[in-house]
């Protein structure tokens, strides 16, 4: 019988040491993906490194610059936080969509990102918020934009001995907000057929001065769609700019047909979601200013 080795380092240095030279290791945060995959026989690591006891991975720092979110901070901690939801309501909503209440106590934004599912809910929301990843490896730290972190389904840019330590979300400017919407056939406990995150900044006249649009579940990785953002910037989220943004998102989408949806369906619906998410983000800005 193969044996499974388990390590629970209490510092980044120990974690790095545990992973050094191992190509057969997997990092365990909440385990809401990894343990399921192991049970299904999809992954068979010889070593599991539990990083929940490493302080940097469990910390939340909210300052002038924005949010630094430890990669293993559970979803429930973020969704219960009094301020994060005000600054990044779309991101918090996206994170809150993962699994059930029980799963929320374990799942994390970092885990959701590292698992590299094309349908991961919080990834488009991180991208829309210009989030960046702080990665620790044997040669020190490096920073990668979230949109460049994943390289394909179930694959990311981490080397075998690297750890995602935290994610930085810059503080949004005034009159800014975001929104994330996903389409599932049910109301919860499901995987996105398509997802869209929109982050907006409006001027006092309601003209969009900045926008980021990201889409999920419609390509091998979540995509930043600059053309959709460009369609929104300079307009007042009027019908015409929403139509163009929606069309740009549909155009950028490169989905597959599988048991959860068809190519045609996903391309169409992701456009619908971009339009609706932009509306939600706009309403949020208007409601708070």
């Amino acid at each position: 019988m193969p044996l499974l080795q388990y390590e629970a380092p209490t510092s980044l240095a120990q974690a790095r040491q545990a992973l050094a030279g191992r190509s057969d290791a997997k990092i365990l945060a909440g385990g809401t993906d990894l343990l399921v995959q192991m049970r299904l026989g999809l992954r068979d690591p010889a070593l599991v490194v539990d990083i929940k006891h490493v302080p940097e991975l469990m910390e939340i720092t909210l300052g002038e610059q924005g949010l630094r979110l430890g990669a293993a901070v559970p979803g429930a901690v973020v969704t219960d936080h009094p301020e994060i939801g005000q600054l990044y309501p779309g991101f918090v909503e996206a994170l809150g969509l993962i699994g059930s209440s029980q799963i929320q106590g374990r799942c994390s934004a970092g885990g959701n990102l590292c698992n590299a599912s094309p349908a991961a809910d919080c990834v488009p929301a991180l991208i829309a918020n210009r989030a960046t990843c702080n990665i620790m490896g044997p040669d020190g730290e490096r920073t990668v934009a979230v949109e460049a972190f994943n390289t394909g389904p179930a694959s990311n840019c981490l080397a075998a001995d690297e750890i995602l330590v935290s994610i930085d979300l810059p503080r949004p400017g005034p009159r800014s907000s975001d929104a994330y919407l996903r389409f599932i056939p049910r109301t919860e406990m499901d995987i996105a057929v398509a997802g869209a995150a929109v982050a907006l900044s409006l001027d006092e006249a309601g003209v969009c001065i900045d926008a980021r649009v990201a889409i999920g579940a419609v390509a091998p990785t979540a995509l930043l769609v600059p053309a959709a953002a460009d369609a929104l910037i300079g307009g007042t989220l009027d019908e015409d700019s929403l139509n163009r943004a929606s069309a740009a998102a549909s155009e950028a989408a490169a989905p597959i047909t599988d048991k959860r949806g068809t190519v045609e369906y996903r391309k169409k619906v992701v456009g619908v979601l971009v339009r609706r998410a932009a509306g939600v983000a706009k309403a949020r800005i208007e409601a708070t200013s």
Binding site: R186, T187, M189, I191, K259, R260
Partner: peptide
């Protein structure tokens, strides 16, 4: 009526052998 169905691939292998993709309604539906 709305979502439940067995999806087989052309080799006769069931593709949705779990409650994630075999969608029985959840309470909030």
């Amino acid at each position: 009526a709305l979502n439940e169905e067995y999806l087989f691939n052309d080799q006769g292998v069931l593709e949705n052998a779990g409650f994630l993709d075999y969608r029985i309604p959840v309470a909030s539906d």
